[in-house]
Simulated scan of single mutants.
Amino acid sequence: MTTGEQGKKKVSYSNLVLGAVLNLSEATTLGQPLEVIKTTMAANRNATSVQAIKQIWSRGGIFGFYQGLIPWAWIEASTKGAVLLFVSADVENRAKAGLGLGNFAAGILGGISGGVVQAYATMGFCTCMKTVEITRSKTAAAGVIPKSSWAVFKEIFAKDGIRGINKGVNAVAIRQMTNWGSRFGFSRLVEEGIRKITGKKNPEDQLTALEKITASAIGGGLSAWNQPIEVIRVEMQSKKADPNRPKTLTVASTFKYIYQTNGIKGLYRGVTPRIGLGIWQTVFMVGFGDMAREFVGKFTGDTPVNKH
């Protein structure tokens, strides 16, 4: 297939289904427990890792690590995964075919595009509600049942409308564009390095599953450099009682508040589980995503987008 023909290649809508299935699998396995640990540490910045895990366990045992999974994480995963794989694959393909970019630059552009679109299109209220569910108090007076997740959602919506349930969405967008720009970019860069080491000079020579997973894991781990943005996002969406927190939270004011109260270390709270989550998510969405497209391509007869 020539470069011109590749640029004219129609968008593969199977990426929507693949993205949804992969992201649901990622979240339901290790994704949500790592998300809960990371969010708990980011919201309680004076707590150690052990204290955070004990706090999560006290909220329901093993089920405490899956708080927010149903329905918010499932809604988020099915929608954001579909958007990410659909947009990033199309943009990455067009960047290489139309702009002549290499795998690294095209991967960054595809990841940034997919991350921004998924943040504003699907992730705002889901991310907000997951954080609310993880950080809100579940205790109530004797004889009073704590509010359900849906009741809290309705309460926030009734009070603040769309802006209330999308609180922190700008921070989410910054996080997602840097997340997936880094993850796709670094993964493609590592793939190029693996090709050189293994002597795969022909573009048609495929990486093995282990090589693809290795590249994705390294790319995912390196993407945790933007942890301060994640801590800011959690603080903006948190329902943790804190009388010292500014009433009006913007990305800038939240950054200032965290820095003044917890210093540089506070901006990197939860970075260890975040690295684990980044690796897990990138292996699913980049490594398994590429392999899944190859698999689907064998049945459809189409050359899959982003063939490496």
Rank of each mutant, 00 (worst) to 15 (best):
A215P: 01
I134N: 04
W150D: 00
Q32M: 13
S12E: 13
E235T: 15
S182M: 06
F255T: 11
Q32A: 02
R59A: 12
V117W: 08
N262F: 08
T198C: 05
D290L: 00
G61M: 10
I258P: 11
Q176W: 08
I229F: 13
A158M: 09
K201M: 06
R183F: 15
S49P: 11
A105C: 15
E76H: 02
L18E: 01
I112W: 07
W225S: 06
S58Y: 04
I232P: 02
G270L: 09
K256S: 11
R183M: 14
A95R: 12
G98N: 15
V231K: 01
V283T: 11
C126A: 13
N179E: 06
S148C: 08
T127M: 04
F284W: 08
G68K: 07
I279N: 10
D290M: 03
S148E: 02
A173R: 12
T40A: 07
W280H: 07
G60M: 11
V169C: 05
G110L: 15
E192C: 02
L207V: 02
S113T: 10
T29A: 10
T2W: 00
E204T: 12
G278M: 06
R59V: 09
S216H: 07
F186R: 10
P246C: 03
T127S: 09
V283R: 00
K138P: 01
S187A: 15
F65E: 06
G276N: 05
I112D: 08
K147R: 15
K201C: 05
S14P: 07
K38E: 11
R195K: 13
V21E: 02
E35Y: 01
G199Y: 15
R233T: 03
G287D: 04
W180F: 13
E155S: 14
E5Q: 02
A105P: 01
L22G: 00
S223K: 07
G7V: 08
A43Q: 04
E92I: 14
T282N: 14
T29G: 01
G193N: 09
G199M: 11
Q67V: 00
G19F: 01
G276W: 10
G287W: 05
V17L: 11
V152S: 02
A52Y: 00
I275T: 09
K265W: 00
G124D: 04
T127D: 12
Q206V: 05
T178Y: 12
N170K: 03
G220D: 04
G199A: 09
L34H: 14
Y13W: 15
L222A: 09
G114T: 07
A52N: 03
K96D: 04
S149G: 03
E26Y: 12
E230A: 05
A20R: 04
G263D: 03
E192F: 02
Q206H: 08
Q118E: 12
T254I: 00
G168E: 13
W72R: 00
S25C: 07
K138S: 02
V190N: 09
I218H: 14
R269D: 00
K212Q: 08
K96F: 07
A252K: 14
I218Q: 11
S88R: 12
T40Y: 08
Q51A: 06
W225C: 07
K240W: 10
M177W: 07
F125G: 08
M291S: 03
E294I: 14
A252H: 01
F184T: 14
G19C: 05
V91R: 05
G289P: 01
R269Y: 04
G7Y: 04
I156T: 11
V169G: 07
G270C: 04
G68E: 10
